[in-house]
Amino acid sequence: MSDPLAALSARGVSIWLDDLSRERLVSGSLADLVADKHVVGVTTNPTIFAKAITAGDAYNPQLHDLSVRGVEAEEALRALTTFDVRAACDVLRPVHDATNGVDGRVSIEVDPRLAHDPEATIAEARALWWLVDRPNLFIKIPAVRQGLPAIAACLAEGISINVTLIFSLSRYDAVIDAFLDGMERARQAGHDLSSLGSVASFFVSRLDAEVDARLDKIGTAEAAELRGRAALANARLAYQHYEQVFSSRRWEALRDAGARPQRPLWASTSTKDPASPDTRYVVGLVTAGVVNTMPEATLRAVGDHGQVPTDSVRGHYAEEQQVLNRLQALGIDYDDVVQKLEDEGVAAFEASWDRLREQLSATLRAQPAGQHRS
């Protein structure tokens, strides 16, 4: 195909945008990407919102109204972000309807400071589900060990979930088990399983960044030869796990009750190494039934010069397991790497949330009480 994004979509990869802002909504940029660039979903996170809300003046009218009402920063933050996500859900609603609920989804993350508190996570997920009030919403819950019960509990209540910050294969297995548990409980509670959705967001490029830094310290020829191979190996093996579980009798019982599989979602797909091709984590992870969420720069790079294969995941499992085995033999501790990345991921989102809350608090205090809304 002359259009690489169309080819990617034709291969069964759902293209989602990893970005959202009020400016993107007001300008029609998101609608244009849906119409012209095969975008069928949107993901957000605290860092994305921190960047959006502190840039430009698109949020000023709503900030003024919140200030006049005496709203505190915590509530203001929820008002601003849920407004954007609700509007994005409306932009994507035709896609949601056309795909019978498979795509057209928009994700919003629970307060990352609650990641290790399952009860608080469930309460926050309920609140966000109610505030946005759109059927094509995903609530994002980090895949930390303590968050697994919250994932199952929310699905059991009929809340669609995007499980985020997955780095390890063992944690991915636990996430799938939480999904199956939640869907089984939802079935018992009488929920319509066909309307419930879930994706498992497997982070990609950050693994190469961490592993490659450790390989560079080793400094041998074999270490150099393994640079840039860990992330694709890890993700491809995750898909092997997906294939195994979603052909099991346990899954088939849910499928027969109307459930859809929890699709793997490739996240963190922009390249961190300037020497690496900017389409690496898109064209290297092409297979049917997955999502790839990309920042706009990566999306446009794929559209401009992406070479999209028929399938770049299946058929590589033995080879990729050997990559992980060789890394372990060189002294790269897989468990240490993935735990470090999980801890850093949660901490980074917490820091973005805290900075934004502090900035919002200062902005709300600085709003002139008698200023007219522009």
Results as ranks from 00 to 15, higher is better:
residue 83 F to G: 01
residue 63 L to G: 03
residue 38 H to M: 14
residue 64 H to I: 04
residue 94 P to F: 10
residue 94 P to K: 09
residue 93 R to I: 04
residue 46 P to T: 01
residue 44 T to P: 08
residue 49 F to M: 04
residue 60 N to M: 13
residue 32 D to M: 11
residue 93 R to T: 06
residue 93 R to V: 09
residue 80 L to H: 07
residue 95 V to R: 13
residue 58 A to H: 02
residue 50 A to E: 03
residue 70 G to S: 09
residue 85 V to C: 01
residue 87 A to V: 06
residue 91 V to K: 05
residue 49 F to N: 06
residue 95 V to S: 12
residue 78 R to L: 15
residue 84 D to N: 11
residue 72 E to S: 15
residue 71 V to I: 14
residue 81 T to K: 01
residue 39 V to Q: 06
residue 30 L to D: 04
residue 48 I to P: 00
residue 77 L to N: 10
residue 83 F to P: 06
residue 42 V to N: 08
residue 35 A to R: 14
residue 90 D to L: 13
residue 76 A to M: 12
residue 76 A to Q: 09
residue 91 V to D: 05
residue 75 E to L: 12
residue 44 T to F: 02
residue 46 P to M: 03
residue 61 P to L: 03
residue 46 P to W: 00
residue 74 E to D: 13
residue 60 N to S: 15
residue 46 P to E: 11
residue 58 A to W: 07
residue 55 A to H: 13
residue 44 T to V: 05
residue 62 Q to A: 00
residue 47 T to G: 10
residue 80 L to A: 04
residue 67 S to G: 15
residue 80 L to N: 10
residue 66 L to C: 00
residue 94 P to W: 08
residue 87 A to T: 14
residue 50 A to K: 01
residue 88 A to V: 01
residue 64 H to G: 09
residue 78 R to D: 12
residue 53 I to W: 02
residue 45 N to E: 09
residue 39 V to K: 04
residue 35 A to P: 11
residue 92 L to P: 03
residue 40 V to D: 08
residue 67 S to L: 04
residue 68 V to R: 12
residue 92 L to M: 12
residue 75 E to G: 05
residue 86 R to W: 05
residue 85 V to W: 05
residue 37 K to P: 08
residue 87 A to F: 08
residue 63 L to Q: 15
residue 66 L to I: 03
residue 35 A to E: 10
residue 41 G to I: 02
residue 67 S to C: 07
residue 33 L to E: 00
residue 96 H to R: 14
residue 69 R to L: 10
residue 51 K to H: 12
residue 90 D to Y: 11
residue 84 D to C: 14
residue 76 A to Y: 06
